[in-house]
Design a protein around this nucleic acid. Structure first.
Lengths: 165, 165
DNA sequence: AAATACTTGACTAAAATACTCGGATATGTA
DNA sequence: TACATATCCGAGTATTTTAGTCAAGTATTT
């Protein structure tokens, strides 16, 4: 399994969606504010998540994204594989042609590890995570922060910093 | 846990060492031939493996590297962490300051995953791998290839290919 | 002395990652 | 219809990592 920040961002964003599952569509701008992920990057990620059928989108004012099904029916593994094309730990992508068209010495090890990770992440759904105490606490903190602060144009703010230097 | 080709190379090389555990020091040149890893890259990796006390080295003719202890006492996890500085799946390296100095929404998930992977790779030693049927077969093939072919300067060969195009 | 083999450090091409930017398109509201 | 809000889409790019090269050592055996 490939574990990159891309996959982490995707899971975080999807978890945010799961937390607001009962509130109608959530905009990427909201997720961006709450989770500190750039809007344009979220757009890229959600294009893939949509293609994989994990989320539905509605355009226009009041629109946004929502999970295509219950949080309990979406394993974390699906989210990660949706944005990170490759899923294998092995070099050859499971084709066993790692070295001179033959299986390399450690091929078995990596396949086994892959399936371990896959199993673990398949066993945990967004729904599972939402119910965790720690997640609830962090989510509550994020809500408070959002209410106290004005909506901010993050990229504009960053641009200011950049030009100031 | 970070899983890169660097870690894979390291495990492959260490497994090669384990396979020749009873034959005195193994040179990096031999490993390079058998496993198709560039000599200079191996040097880098083994510098780290030595610092971590996983291998002992002897210089001069007849020298080389050998495992510092029995293959059964070296878990794969140790090899990987020796060459891949970071070991955490989490962004913050377990410090819980992933977002605005606070714990991010998915922090728990990644810590748990980390420990899962760690457990798995701690449970498998080089000795375990050596005994696997698949590994034995691949190793046997590599021995045959090595005996049939002249020692080759790999990087010189590669350079030829490159200039030919 | 000569050959072998490890040791160290600096450097680099190529790939991947993590984004940004600009614009297009759809949709609800006044 | 105008306008604001959102999603869509493609191209471009700075940074980091990977995977390696290169050069100049040092230690040890024969």
């Amino acid at each position: 399994m490939r574990l990159t920040t891309k996959g982490r961002y995707a899971v975080t964003a999807m978890l945010d969606l799961a937390l607001h599952y009962n509130e109608g569509p959530t905009t990427l701008a909201d997720i961006s504010h709450r989770q500190g992920i750039s809007l344009s990057y979220l757009e890229q990620l959600f294009a893939k998540l949509r293609k994989q059928g994990l989320v539905d989108s509605t355009r226009g004012p009041g629109g946004g994204y929502r999970l295509s099904r219950s949080p309990h029916e979406i394993p974390v593994a699906n989210v990660i594989t949706a944005v990170d094309e490759k899923v294998e730990t092995t070099r050859c992508g499971g084709l066993s042609n790692c070295q001179d068209d033959q299986q390399c010495l450690t091929h078995e090890l990596w396949s086994e590890l892959s399936s371990q990770i896959h199993q673990f992440l398949c066993g945990i759904s967004l729904g599972t995570l939402v119910e965790k105490e720690g997640v609830k606490q962090v989510a509550a903190r994020q809500e408070r922060l959002q209410k106290n602060s004005q909506p901010v144009n993050v990229s504009a703010a960053k641009r200011e910093v950049a030009t100031a230097s």
